[in-house]
Design a protein around this nucleic acid. Sequence first.
DNA 1: TTGAAATATAAGCATATAATTATATAATAT
DNA 2: ATATTATATAATTATATGCTTATATTTCAA
Lengths: 112, 112
Amino acid sequence: MEKIPIEKLATVLKLLGDKTRLTMILLLKESECCVCEFVEVFQMSQPAISQHVRKLKDASLITETRKGQWIFYSLNKQSEFYEAIISVLEHLPTQAEKLIQLELQGKKVNCE
Amino acid sequence: MEKIPIEKLATVLKLLGDKTRLTMILLLKESECCVCEFVEVFQMSQPAISQHVRKLKDASLITETRKGQWIFYSLNKQSEFYEAIISVLEHLPTQAEKLIQLELQGKKVNCE
DNA sequence: TTGAAATATAAGCATATAATTATATAATAT
DNA sequence: ATATTATATAATTATATGCTTATATTTCAA
């Protein structure tokens, strides 16, 4: 397994050491999401969500793809931390119900 | 595998998201240590070390055993987070050299 | 081409964090 | 008994963090 320098991993763990960001990463493992979906799921302001997303993006833990007016975020499988992140996520219960809730509320973004 | 509520794991990851504490945990995986050894290894003040240790102890990630004038700390294998912690540590390179250095400097505590 | 929706960013503020300094407690050795 | 060593704790301070409010940018739709 690829080893990671302690300092780098500590930085990543600090990013994951926030309930909102950890949940974001867990959701992104199951499905790509855009900011407005996170706003619904977390019931937080758009700037607060954008700022959390930016931290994850700055660390290259997630990547973005614009689709029309939305920007979708995904887990970055190319990240040197990807495997470590997955091994953390494995200890968490699925958050699929949050995505189902979104769907039921008609808040899931469909950009086709 | 035992699942952990997101909020709890986020709290633990925040504790591990500090270079000093992450290294402490990694060292404790290899060998129990006392505060004065950590002071040598990290070249930090005794109160700074004690405060990091306290955070880990407050979260029950480590346990203490007094041996004479020293208090030795160990990874708490009974913690509900133990497995998750180990799976994080597996991504880190061994810190055995730090312990060997201690030994060579005659700073390793022998309490027999 | 004007307005609305999605997102980003900057400034400000309140709280959290990590260090230092000073002091207290507990065990050991003389 | 007293001094020394190991450790803990409290107060203080500087910096980091996460939120809010306000505003800018981009895309799409009318």
